[in-house]
Design a protein around this nucleic acid. Structure first.
Lengths: 209, 209
DNA sequence: GCAGGAATTATTCAAGCGTATAATAGCGCG
DNA sequence: CGCGCTATTATACGCTTGAATAATTCCTGC
């Protein structure tokens, strides 16, 4: 009847592990399954430890949501910064939203699991709002840069409208592609997104390629 | 210590009531709260009755999802049929997706609550797929009719691409509008959607008005 | 107006939940 | 090397969960 042997980890490392385990469980089995016991088992520790690092299980799940959103936005920003011209950066931002890092099954599954809580829990609402706004502003800024670079003037309100529409388009494509992706047979989501954005901005076809 | 008096309802009516109660609870408090006890309390019956009409609680929740999707598609179809010309019908289909019946807080809340289960449960996946496909085909048909009526030819693959993009746009706008709607200040979602669809189809501005 | 069957209620059960508390073991520091 | 701090484990508690079962009440058909 010996106790389990264990390893004393640094605070930061342990918190990271617990959050990672939380996201793993949620991605694979949904929020329902994100119980103290499942998560601690996945992290290789016992349940009590969670309360040592978080004041409640719910607080840990909120931290996990923040982590997810941060990862998504960082991934897209990285894609956008990886471009020499304003056009390249805009294109990378758009396709970055639709390709691997952000669109992998795990991320989608997590996003879908959490979105149902946004209406219910004010903390989730706040987190969602914060990152949605960040996406929107990032996109708006990139649009403004690109349009300026090709000599097009757009007033603020119209620009925001374009940003919202494009953001909606990206979100919708991303979501439907992942939840019922086999319906896209023969269509490349990246290309579809680029052609659509060109349409929405009134650009010539293929001008973003 | 008398028993509660009760009313013997017809099977169809009782099932409808139970499903309605299920949707009420889920809309207000999420899937977590959709317990046998909460739902039966809301329906004004005792918990055991649920098992008399459904083989399990989960099966009842699936029936509720089907009911929700059916209601959404019917509401949009009704809006679309309420138009004299192909243009009016297309416009109604688009704005119908964004206005009251479909976009009210309850529907959004329900949609968001369920979407997280689509990846997890094959039955939910099947239901989602079925109705998504129905939306898409309806939209594609309306686009084809309208474009034909103004003398535009579009090959099948391109048409499907347009339908997917527009459907994505509508989904995205609809979702973001509802979850973070106050960001749309000064912008009319209906107008934004119509102008965006015109762009995506390469139509003149305001030609759908 | 009553008999019988089905709809509904009431009660119980085992399992799983989040949390609180106490015991213990790893590890840095003297 | 050993002391002390605290990260970690272990266990227990009260509640809620979905489901099963038994008891009852309503309603239909005669």
């Amino acid at each position: 009847m010996n106790r389990r042997t264990f390893h004393r980890a640094g605070e930061a490392e342990r918190r990271r592990d617990l959050i990672a385990a939380t996201l793993d469980v949620i991605a694979e089995q949904g929020l329902r399954a994100a119980t103290v016991r499942q998560i601690s088992a996945r992290a290789g520790v016992t349940g009590g430890l969670i309360r040592h690092y978080f004041s409640s299980k719910d607080q840990m799940v909120q931290a996990a949501y923040r982590e997810l959103m941060q990862g998504m936005i960082r991934s897209v920003e990285a894609a956008a910064e990886n471009g020499a011209t304003t056009k390249e950066r805009l294109r990378n931002f758009i396709t970055g939203n639709l390709s691997k890092d952000v669109t992998d099954a795990r991320t989608i599954s997590l996003w879908a699991a959490f979105i149902g809580h946004v209406n219910l829990d004010p903390v989730f609402a706040e987190i969602h709002r914060e990152y949605y706004l960040a996406f929107l502003e990032k996109l708006e800024a990139m649009l403004a840069s690109y349009l300026a670079s090709i000599g097009r003037k757009t007033d603020g309100q119209a620009l925001r409208g374009k940003a919202i529409a494009i953001n909606g388009l990206i979100d919708g494509l991303w979501l439907e592609n992942s939840v019922a992706g086999d319906l896209f047979t023969g269509l490349d989501p990246d290309k579809l997104a680029l052609r659509s954005v060109e349409d929405l901005l009134g650009l010539d076809a293929n001008s973003l390629d």
